[in-house]
Amino acid sequence: MQFVLHRAKKKLQAIILRISDWAIFVGLVLIGGLGSSYYMLSAGNSLTTLKVGPWSTWKHEGRVDADPYTRAHFARSGTLNLTTDIANTYQASRDSDGLRLHSSCEYEISGETLDARWWSITALDDQGRLIANPSSRYTFTSDTVAISPDGTFTVTLARDARPGNWLPTAGAGRLTLAMTLLESDAAIAGDTEAEAATIVLPVIKRVACR
């Protein structure tokens, strides 16, 4: 009787060992396959996205010949984007030092007048929702932003009112900035990293945090 039990125990151990090997195999395949796909859809890589400082854009958004990663990214985000043939939509969720944008901090977005027929900068939360504020300020465009006599501009992101081009961030938590450039030669040509180096976009500088 004891011998039979011993054999059964050994057999069970062998089965468990084999099943655990398969479980590890399947687990690794799932993590590797789905994880790499998720990463490529969320962040992209140099083939699908273009990074200019803290700003990034999807190179083939809205295009009929877009790659599967770009298609899946925008299907997931549920947004309605213009084709990169006429516009580029950049997003930034970090400042120029690589730190996460957050409503508890104050930022200065500064640059020279952008090389585009028309442009805009909008402050949103990290889900792409507008940030409710009493002054109903959400965006600045090339028509509404106050530009200095030397051709530069500065937009301030802060909770409390600031002079000049102020975008309120209230208590939104993590922030995302969206910038649209309409018919910008540099932005549309910028398909490679070398071309990206010629694109000049505003710098996002952290001023202070609470």
């Binding site: 947004t79 805009s120 909008t122 507008l130 959400y138 969206a178």
Partner: peptide, 16 residues
């Protein structure tokens, strides 16, 4: 006009 209460899509911005 697009506002926080009336924003049918994420990243649909009120710049236009």
């Amino acid at each position: 006009p697009i506002t926080p209460e009336n924003q049918p899509l994420p990243f649909l911005t009120p710049d236009v």
